[in-house]
Amino acid sequence: MATPSGRGRSAAARTLWPWRIAVALAAFAPLPCWLRQAMTGHAGPEPGRYLMEHLGKGTLVLLLLTLSLTPLQRLSRWQGFSRIRRQLGLWTFAYALLHLLAYLWFFLGFNAHALLADLSRRPYIMVGMAALAGLTLMAATSHRRAMRRLGKSWKRLHRLVYAVLILGLLHYFWIVRADLGEWAIYALAGLLLLVLRLPPVAKEFSRQGRPPVTDA
């Protein structure tokens, strides 16, 4: 993912703060809603599973949204999309952590032995953990200081996001038991976003973007 440029930051920060706060609220909003459903008996007889599944799909949605920001910005030439990239990346990480917490709590009962058994034997757990490790690395290096210190390798490190997407989709694929329909929607969206990154496609794509709009 591209490094946000330093130029005009203060001006953009001033004008874009309502947008950024709105995005933060929208990203946060599902959490209290799901928790409320789970606490009030509206999430069925297994509310922990409800939370875990919603958090897992939420992670994937946030990841896909994060990856759609660069193409959206190229298309619209609007700064706002790149200004929420780090935020959405961190929300993705937060959802993934909560998804893990739900699994440890409601499925394993915080049993360390059961966790070790799952980690050593079950490919979909290993793949999910690897995806989370990737997100953790990116979250830990998402601040300005890490960006400066890592220089060029920051960008290379944050290309991990493509691996995380593929691992996340694989993790979901291995959980599907009887119908691939819903998974296929996420996979197609992910594939589209990956294809847009292929150099020839990306070049063509950015040429077709509309002329820049003044963002006053």
Partner: peptide
Amino acid sequence: WSQATERRLPNSL
């Protein structure tokens, strides 16, 4: 997944 344990339903958070 393991079959050693089960979640007896309904359960709660």
